[in-house]
């Protein structure tokens, strides 16, 4: 019943956006919402389920995006290249989790930040492969003469990938590994000593899943944007993903979708609002950013546990 209600609400939101923005624009937004939600879902597993602080998730998305771009340029079919991008994200996530053997809390978070900086530096410096700061043009997602160039096709692909990712994450969270993640999140020492959970393996699994989803999101993002460069996956992008997860509700998988909706679509609604503001006020530089910041502060004040959480503040 809840799922049906969610589908109906999502459909109504999409139809409303189509009326407000026009079909292509609304579907373009929905595509990016779904793509960001996949990356957010990976982060929700690591942060919300396993309780690990990650400050450099953008780097894992970058790995997926670059692997996909490079393979697509060489004509590798997408059903192979996207799987390889996910595997690369998975491997990068596993690497990023290695310091968790010795570090915890904020110190581990700082190590993920350092990992992200290393990835960005490698993408910038390895010019023979990545073209450095000049960036890479990414061909349209397609195979055997068919290309996903329309907003509708892109939306359907991203939405299907998001649904699959949600189903996978739900199954994982409901299983033994999901219980292990939550035990680690609540109390690492008790999880290890009382329940016999292998902390390293649990964290590694969370990062591998989160990295694979980040890789998938990166692969799709690369095709939808059509051009990638290291600066697009910098620290601001990582913080944007982190904000997405906390606004949506880090402990709820559907929070990633709601957070992505806020992060991607809210600025667009503010743009519409700005267009109807009287006088030159709407022309002021940065007015969207100010309004966006205000709305985010309000959301955090009213729903400190995230939009997906049931309880309200106070």
């Amino acid at each position: 019943m809840m799922r049906l209600r969610g589908v109906v609400v999502a459909t109504l939101v999409l139809l409303g956006a189509m009326l407000a923005f026009g079909a292509d624009h609304a579907l373009g937004q929905a595509t990016l919402v779904a793509t960001y939600a996949i990356a957010g879902l990976g982060l929700a597993v690591i942060v919300g389920q396993a309780g690990q602080i990650v400050l450099g998730q953008g780097a894992l998305v970058a790995v997926g995006a670059y692997v996909e771009a490079l393979l697509a340029q060489r004509g590798v079919p997408p059903f192979i290249s996207i799987v390889l991008a996910m595997m690369a994200g998975c491997l990068a996530g596993a690497c990023a989790s290695l310091p968790a053997r010795r570090l915890g809390g904020l110190y581990f978070g700082m190590s993920t930040l350092a990992f992200a900086m290393i990835v960005e530096e490698v993408l910038t410096r390895w010019e023979s492969l990545t073209r450095g700061g000049a960036g890479l043009s990414v061909p349209a997602l397609g195979w055997a003469g068919m290309e996903a160039v329309t907003p509708l096709a892109q939306f359907l692909i991203s939405a299907a990938a998001l649904v699959l990712a949600l189903v996978l994450c739900r199954r994982l969270c409901a299983g033994r590994i999901g219980r292990a993640w939550r035990a680690v999140r609540e109390d690492e020492v008790a999880a290890a000593e009382a329940c016999g959970i292998d902390l390293v393996r649990a964290k590694l699994a969370a990062f591998a899943v989160g990295g694979a989803l980040a890789g998938l999101a990166g692969a799709l993002y690369a095709h939808w944007i059509g051009f990638i460069s290291p600066e697009q996956f910098g620290l601001f992008f990582s913080f944007e993903l982190l904000m997405l997860v906390f606004i949506g509700g880090a402990r709820h998988l559907r929070g990633a979708v709601l957070g992505a909706l806020v992060i991607v679509s809210l600025p667009q609604f503010i743009t519409l609002l700005r267009d109807v503001l009287p006088g030159d006020w709407g022309r002021s530089a940065g007015v969207e950013s100010v309004l966006f910041g205000l709305v985010i502060v309000l959301v955090v004040l009213l729903r400190p546990q995230g939009i997906a959480a049931k309880g309200r503040a106070g």
Binding site: F21, G22, H25, P151, T271
Partner: peptide
Amino acid sequence: DPKRAVLATRK
């Protein structure tokens, strides 16, 4: 931000 630019362009 290319992502915001893409959405702005579609608008």
